[in-house]
Design a binder for these strands. Sequence first.
RNA 1: GUCCGGUUCGUCUAGGGGUUAGGACACCGCCCUUUCACGGCGGCAACACGGGUUCGAAUCCCGUACCGGAUACCA
Length: 538
Amino acid sequence: MSVRVRFAPSPTGYLHIGSARTALFNYLFARNTGGKFLLRIEDTDLARSTDESTRSIIDGLAWLGFAPDEEIVFQSANADKHREAANRLLAEGKAYRDFTPKEAAGDGSVKEAIKQRAREQGADKNMRDNPYRELSVVESDTRAANGEPFAIRLKVPESGRTAFDDQVYGIQERDYADTEDLVLLRSDGHPLYNLAVVCDDIEMGITHVIRGQDHLTNTHKQILIYEALGVAPPTFAHLPLIMAPNKGKLSKRKHGEVVSMTTYRDAGFLAEAFRNFLALLGWSAGEEKEIYSMQELIEKFSLDGIHRSNAIFNFHPDDPRKWTDDKAIWMNAEYIRTMPLAQLLPHVRTELKANKLWREEYDEAGTSPYDGGVDAASADGVVLPREIGSYEWYLHTVDLIRQRFFTLNDFSSQGRAYFSEDFDFDPAAVAKNLTKFPELREWLPELADRFEAEFQAETRPVGSVPLGGSRSLAYTEENIETVVKAFTEEKGTKLGVIMNGARTLLTGTAVGPSMLSVFEVIGHDRAVMRLRSQVAWN
RNA sequence: GUCCGGUUCGUCUAGGGGUUAGGACACCGCCCUUUCACGGCGGCAACACGGGUUCGAAUCCCGUACCGGAUACCA
């Protein structure tokens, strides 16, 4: 029998990080086994489900790259079938009508109320004490016919136990005495979760149910329903939960944006990096490897590698640099700096376009006699003459600056100065590298003069035949180093002071690639202009 | 309360009777770049506790503690 799994979120919010991982594991399992990955929106709770949420979940899934193999199933569309199943069980005597009036819906702290009630009932609670459980069929039918409202509850047998072999947690057993006569159909006629899930999983031909561990006890109830329906249950595999740093529940209310998938998309994460990170949260291939391509993940994934203990999603709300899990940030940076440049380019393009930093030239290969494409531009040690703003220059620049970036957004924020004259100065960088050394206010413009005196102007591309006399040096890293060092010695200061000051003036930041490369990539003319600029000082 | 589950460095984890308990992130230090959040090298740091079983337990069993989940006419 070929594998069929489903990811079944309820559309009551955005795509949560835990749900995203559940989707990932289902997806990986399906691909690994050559099965189908399906999507079912569990919108049984009409009051809480929203279209907006459904859309956001589908968007999040699309971003992560998990396209369902069949059409999306909306659970609410199957309500009739669920009702039918409940009525059948009623007719067969496997369920009964409960005429107990519905309790007024609690507000807010339903969870607490339930806990409280359960505590009060203690261990003495008899799950079979519903007065309507043994009501005669005649009386039940009569009362129903008279229009008296009722819920339909499953008639759990007096004695026995449910059991299943969870693929992660092992054999799970539970005495019937610990399971209530669960409601199948509400008094308003709407089916409840456990019934709906079972019916839909049967109808969709689901072979493996892979979901959060919070459903472990639901599984016993669902097995009871499978048994009543006379259908063999699927295989179950429950996943450990992802918790907040205090081991508490990770929720939007308490933790905000960090738990939403769209946050990562918007923050400039690469889907492949985030997937990789998610895969390692609660699963391991049992080897000392961290970076996995999707293909490797698919090949190596197995239910055996899933953990039984909850994982903490570690983040520090107070530290802007660690607003989300360290490892996720590191992994994204790792992907950005090591993935093939050609794969990164489309993302950078999107980022630059969105920030009006894009030039058509960056798109066009083959416009320069020096054009060697992506490979040549990223080859070590090969210095190709390149014109500022050209395609080759662009490739080289992206390849250079990505080394210290963490997110795609960095290309337009920290990297803005490479693509535009209109960039901001990081106040911390200004304080640390400029105002701390007031002499620089004189020195840096002097350095600009020196550049002008020593180097060929931009219009004469690097590598062309030098002019005689002064202004003869090619604007290369090597020559820049010579000039800057000489200048430093004249001023009797440390190279770092000049370099850091120049970095801040040239790029607005305190960090980046080797400063010699920065000089070179920014280009002679812009470097001179920026070294003279006084705006950062004011 | 009851039922179920879990517990290896701060975090993610490897390891499932004999290991100097391994890796990654973070952190710290050194080196590189007479500059930085790259890179290289190194360091700090863990088997919850108590009993068993065993020649030997992080690994197996029991108990305790702690954490989590469930206990709805929510999903």
